[in-house]
Amino acid sequence: MLKLDSGTFGRIVAILTTYVPSGVAYGTLATALHIPWYYTVILSVVVYSGAVQSAFVGLWAIGFEPITMILTAFLLNLRHTFYGPHLEEKYPLMSSRDMYSIAPVLTDEIYALAVSDPPMKVPVVRNLGYFAYSCWVVSSALGVALAGGLPLFLYPILYLALPALFLALLIPRVKGASTALSAAVSISVAVVIKLYELPEYSILISIGAGILAGLLMLKAGGGK
């Protein structure tokens, strides 16, 4: 069971307000692209990656090419390479059993919430992960059911939840010159990538640029 202290409650609210709108949006989009409902839901159950699933339905719409799909999925999920090891550092007492149970439900949001302060207990991280997974699957199915039924003005409001969540998780981590520079560089590069409509996996460039800038500043004596 999740222990409902104020930190956990805030994280549950964050998951509900981000996963439900995103899942509904994914289900609606997939249905609008004439993808059978069972593929839409099965993708949520077995792939469980908003970015990869969106890429899948996007490629479905323009003509499916398997090598492109696999390569795109690999690049989109490449950032996950850092998530598990970071959790390992944050929660040094985590057992192999914990790792095997949490890894399948480790997403951007769960990673972000788990490494944010105050730290959670490992079972809470795991429960939060499976709660988010359930929200994603159910809201994807809900999106299929609601396709075309939601008022249009609601979509921009729902879509705002994810950027707001990452903003909320970013701000407390900026504690000095090098972390501020790291944030500024990654955001600036990400804006350029977005404005030039580069592929989604170009996000790796902005992440890499932010890390490099932070480390260089730290080495130059800028302080965290």
Partner: peptide, 25 residues
């Protein structure tokens, strides 16, 4: 060296994901 890098990974990932998920400027 990853131990040192992790803080910057988190910050850069959050910043990038924030921008990536903004639907329009």
């Amino acid at each position: 060296i990853l131990t040192i890098v992790f803080d910057y990974v988190a910050i850069s990932a959050f910043g990038s994901l924030m921008v990536e998920n903004i639907q329009s400027f």
